[in-house]
Nucleic acid binder design. Sequence first.
DNA 1: TAGATTGTTAATCGATTAACAATC
DNA 2: TAGATTGTTAATCGATTAACAATC
Lengths: 216, 216
Amino acid sequence: MEEREISQAVIRRLPRYYRYLGELLENGVERISSNDLSKRMKVTASQIRQDLNNFGGFGQQGYGYNVKYLYTEIGKILGLEQHHNIIIIGAGNLGQALANYADFEKRGFILKGIFDVNPTLADVSIRGVPVRMMDELEQFVRENDIEIGVLTIPKTKAVEVANNLVNNGVRAIWNFAHIDLNLPENVIVENVHLSESLMRLSYNISRYHEEHKESK
Amino acid sequence: MEEREISQAVIRRLPRYYRYLGELLENGVERISSNDLSKRMKVTASQIRQDLNNFGGFGQQGYGYNVKYLYTEIGKILGLEQHHNIIIIGAGNLGQALANYADFEKRGFILKGIFDVNPTLADVSIRGVPVRMMDELEQFVRENDIEIGVLTIPKTKAVEVANNLVNNGVRAIWNFAHIDLNLPENVIVENVHLSESLMRLSYNISRYHEEHKESK
DNA sequence: TAGATTGTTAATCGATTAACAATC
DNA sequence: TAGATTGTTAATCGATTAACAATC
């Protein structure tokens, strides 16, 4: 009955397994061993087996893993079979990019609304979902059972809006604003800090130059 | 002379330190101890000191760290003072969002070109940078000393385009396509897999529901 | 000087890898 | 059955935290 906590390191790898299994499935591959998969994914076979065994024994000795079965099971673990109502706050390029993002539906996220402060967007619809003005936000969240908010707004507004969403029932935030939200710990936050990703890229380029300058 | 390798865990945290120090700087804070910073960032003071000491002793006993100095030094470590020519391939919403991204310039990345297959975009300019057609790509990369390519194109095209870029001199890829590129190991790749981020969010929501269903 | 806080070593913790018995 | 490959335990490796002497 006592569930042991799955480490974040494992969870971070899970979607990648799912992606590879999806590709194998598309290519008509029926079964795969941890060893084969390890070569494709460039991780150790040991890690694959350890990771999967956190959730159950999905394989069979002497055979390996059935691709379709494992794909489905990981999908369940990731919760992709459940449906969640989602809204996007911030209808700029990034917000629109996400609104047009086909994966939303595939992953069980149902886009219910898009919000912005800019009145010139008031007549715009994206994939049939109209852009609404921010003053409708709170009521909309309450009345439409919104579980997830996507923040594609400047960091100066993000904290306030996030608190607002949570106060009206939102349980999870996909945060693209360059700031930490510091929400109550029962609220789930997944950060996408693009500026930090860019800086890691920058660091790695610099380090590469550094390492190779003596050989010049 | 022998540089010990800095762990990826440290590098992943570095931009976040930089962000917090930037905020402190904006707020006119002159100095900060690892202990104060640890409370704000919700990491241990020990970790902050360990991380920073990978790169040098930036603090002073009994005083702490000078915010401005530390900010500048981390900026140097991250390579933000260097300039790199960058192009975006894929002028959809996401590509346009990134092209409009003010941080590029601030981080030393100079947007030189945007490319797309869609001829209706041929007359469009974003922040003064015109969208070019893909058949100009190779020549453009060679002639304009392009160091970094941003891939905001579908995964079906990403591998081919990435190889193309690398063959024409590009040294680093910021990859938003949902696929692993498998480039030569001297090419730096920073992946932003939004679908994986979304699945982690989905997982955490499911797990939360799981944990709380008995208390219903 | 006394107090504060770093830089750094040592201890602990957790994650990864290796190994192999179980078993299909 | 023999060969293959898992599930899982044990060994190793690396990262985090604790502790404290050095020193501003």
